[in-house]
């Protein structure tokens, strides 16, 4: 992701990186979910139906500290609400029918929207979105099965630094956005607000409140571009 994308398909290196990252996330998250659920079928079903590692983790985190089922569900929903905002963000850039729009909506995740939004044409946005969606699904499903059926062999995945893979992927994806001043301001305020609220706010809330960064960044003229 070293240059702004102009072609429809992201580089193979990017797609492979996203695939491997989601493999790692699939392994680490589903080892954890399997431990809590105790059923391979339910773990795999949750991986496919919920299709949100962060929502599953938010649910587990609240239950782990003794929270009620409702509180855990709300935490999962709050975390998932960002997908609606990402979807709305993507929706303004594409020109497709209701069927494809609905299919895209169900697959809106952080990396595919992040990469797609850097394209310059509506067809490029949609094409990049589906390429990245395919790569992350491949990695996620392979990781899910590996986590469920080989979790005991893999052992502590964090020992391999796999818990740093997701933030590193997201960082690489938004690197180009950070080179434009409005994007940089939005990211600094969003990230800073999240860090400030993390110790005090309920799970998921800091992420949603980070939207303030996008609102504040509206005041930064688009013509100002940060030096690379």
């Amino acid at each position: 992701m070293s240059e702004a994308r102009t072609s429809a398909r992201p580089e193979w290196g990017t797609l492979i990186g996203i695939c491997l990252t989601f493999f790692a996330i699939g392994v680490t998250v589903n080892v954890l979910v399997y431990e809590h659920v105790g059923s391979a079928v339910k773990t795999i079903a949750a991986a496919g139906i919920v299709l949100s590692a962060t929502s599953e983790l938010a649910y587990i985190a609240v239950r782990d500290v003794g929270g009620s089922i409702l509180a855990a569900l709300i935490a999962g929903w709050v975390v998932a609400s960002r997908f609606g905002l990402l979807a709305a963000s993507l929706g303004t850039r594409i020109k497709v029918g209701h069927l494809q729009r609905s299919c895209a909506a169900l697959n809106c995740l952080d990396p595919n929207v992040g990469v797609a939004m850097q394209q310059t044409t509506p067809s490029g946005v949609m094409s990049a979105f589906w390429w990245v969606t395919g790569a992350l699904h491949l990695g996620w499903w392979c990781g899910t099965f590996a986590g469920v059926f080989l979790g005991n062999i893999i052992g502590d995945a964090n020992r391999l630094g796999l818990d740093a893979v997701f933030p590193a992927l997201l960082l690489a994806i938004i690197a180009n956005l950070l080179r434009q001043r409005p994007g940089f301001v939005a990211a600094i305020i969003g990230g800073g607000l999240c860090a400030a609220l993390l110790p005090i706010a309920p799970a998921g809330t800091p992420i949603i409140l980070s939207l303030t960064g996008a609102v504040v960044a509206l005041r930064v003229p688009e013509s100002q571009v940060a030096k690379p």
């Binding site: 905002l85 963000s89 303004t92 992040g114 939004m117 969003g190 990230g191 509206l218």
Partner: peptide, 22 residues
């Protein structure tokens, strides 16, 4: 529209902070 275009930068950076320091 412009605000929606800036949402990925704000949200994803918050997610980076959350998954790094949470």
């Amino acid at each position: 529209n412009r605000c929606l275009g800036l949402i990925p930068a704000a949200l994803v950076s918050a997610l980076i902070v959350n998954s790094t320091l949470g």
